[in-house]
Amino acid sequence: MNPTPVPLTFRLLQAATPLLFLMVVLVFGLLEPRFFSFSNLQGILLQSTATALVAVGMTFVLLVAGVDLSVGALMFVGAALAGKLILAGQPVALALAVMLAVGVVGGTVNALLVTRLRLIAFVATLGLLHVGRGLGLWITQTRAMNLPDSFLQLGSAQWLGLPLPLWLLSVVVLAAWTLLNRTPFGRHLYATGFSEEAARKAGLPTRRIIGLAYVLCGACAGLGGMVALAQLGAVSPSFGEYYEFEAITACVLGGISLFGGRGQVFPGPILGAVLVKSLFNGLVMIQADPYLFPVITGAVIFFAVGVDSLRARWLQRWNQRPIYLTDPV
């Protein structure tokens, strides 16, 4: 390849999400100096943990060119069951295990719908979203449940100076990264996302690979549900709503292609999740009209996605082989 200098604008576009992130932080920091305080930054990180966990799971599914709209509903079902168990005096560990199990079971159902019944991922997971939401409301009898403070402490407890949710996130991200980049399964996942047909022809067990992506996504949704529950301390009928959109947004901001096969699980989606949450946090701090939050968030995400599309087009032009070399300017 010819070592033509890369234009500055292109380099800026390449780093669009981190730059946008910096911009958001700077703007809020200038408007409200308390935004920069350590406790607030840590708070943002904690607030984004649940979304980041779900986004890690979503990454697997997006990498195989699928989508999972049911994650929020799965979080809700898990939280509803866990809440019942805790209020009935069962051990916390059991409740947490049940949340994870609900995620895995839901993911397995999605996997079966997509790989065995050959439903389109969008429709299959949309159906499970309905079922899950209904199930959760039925379990909770559409009433909110407040959990004891002992449970709430899980969300803020620390180990070696780091809050537990951040430990969980770190472990999950490390595991996901290793799985995707250092095992044959991970590389097969990328290959399947690039072209399912070609992967099948190459003798890869594409059904199992795609299925496993949904199971992993469900498991991550279960973990995300745990963190969200421990932080909120209550199960309301709207628990877990819009997590699917937040997770997809975090992934897209983090450079995961919706068409499969492209993107890295770290740092993109994590950064994307933090960006979305810091936006919320900042708006709260500057005491913006709460009704404007979705408007501003929507606009910022739109901008980020637009920049990303621009970057993809530039990249395409950049990768085009020249037929003859132009004289250096």
Partner: peptide, 20 residues
Amino acid sequence: MPPFMVTLTSLMFFSGVAVW
């Protein structure tokens, strides 16, 4: 831009405007 993301963000934006 991908239609899914465009219309998702405009869903957030315009329903936000309506609420506001």
